[in-house]
Design a protein around this nucleic acid. Sequence first.
DNA 1: CGGATTTGACCGTA
DNA 2: TACGGTCAAATCCG
Length: 327
Amino acid sequence: MEQTGGWEQETLINELHQGYELTKQLKHHIGPLTSPESCEFLVHKIISTYDRALSILKFGDSAGEFQQVAGTFEPPQPLTGGSPMSEASDQCHKDAYKKRKTSPRWTEQVRVCSGKGTGDDGFTWRKYGQKDILGANFPRAYYRCTHRHVQGCLATKQVQKSDADPSIVEITYRGRHTCIQSPALASSGKEFAKQKKCHLLEENQRIPLFNFGTGFKTEDMGIMEETFPSFSFPSSPSKTQNVETISFPEPLKEKNLLGSEFLSVFEFPIDNFGFGENLQHSESDLSEIISAPTSVTNSPTGNLDFFSLDQVDFDPNFQFDASEFFS
DNA sequence: CGGATTTGACCGTA
DNA sequence: TACGGTCAAATCCG
């Protein structure tokens, strides 16, 4: 928990750098042909990026202990009992990050208001198993990305009702999405997602602008972090303020996981979906991703351009001047 | 009929 | 050996 600061510094730099890239993209996208959804998504992403950066500055490290709420970090809190979620009423939403030695994963608890709170997180999932878990009152369901075979997406998730409160489901995400699922598609729900399936690859080739799954995780610490006040915000974006008082709009609670699997630190918009294989090699060692980012980008789709860290100069003295991005 | 779900079997790990 | 995770055949569903 107490760290030298190297990790968060790097994260901070990367966050800022991502904000830079996103802003540049937004600049390019602002125009008559631009879809409002894309712009809005970029804006939210940018805000989230800076939000995280600010959070890092504000709280220092301990990211592994953070619970992330509404796309922002909050200082460490106990996971159970008296947690904010218990008071958050319907839109209650909380992320919990649990450390795992060999299989880091990121767990989110979602209160189910209707019957479908188990997974409409913007991705399409296919259930592949269910198990009764020892000591648990409810079985655990296993899902993998629908596009596992088509695009080699290795993202999986586990959904299990909470013993303590059946109205809450714990969703544990593992791996990251390497498939392309746009926010417009995702935010339109499953119907859109169904339509999209047939055109997934076309979408990939047509608008390889950015990956709509984004996020932030730290696998080397055995945890994953993430979440944006995502693209599906119906109206007002989060205003980057006050991380303590933010509450989710109702729709957000089922959308905010969109990018849970992505390593935004290294994945930049245009081609940030190429690290799926990384996870296999480095679930518990982020350094492997860092040291050999391009050696494992053997996506089955074969036509993805992957971001090369070589292209990124993580200058410690990175200067950030927003004005130049809009010039 | 194709894709998604169910469910028992199988496998790896601790 | 028990348990969690995955596979795959059977079944369901639109």
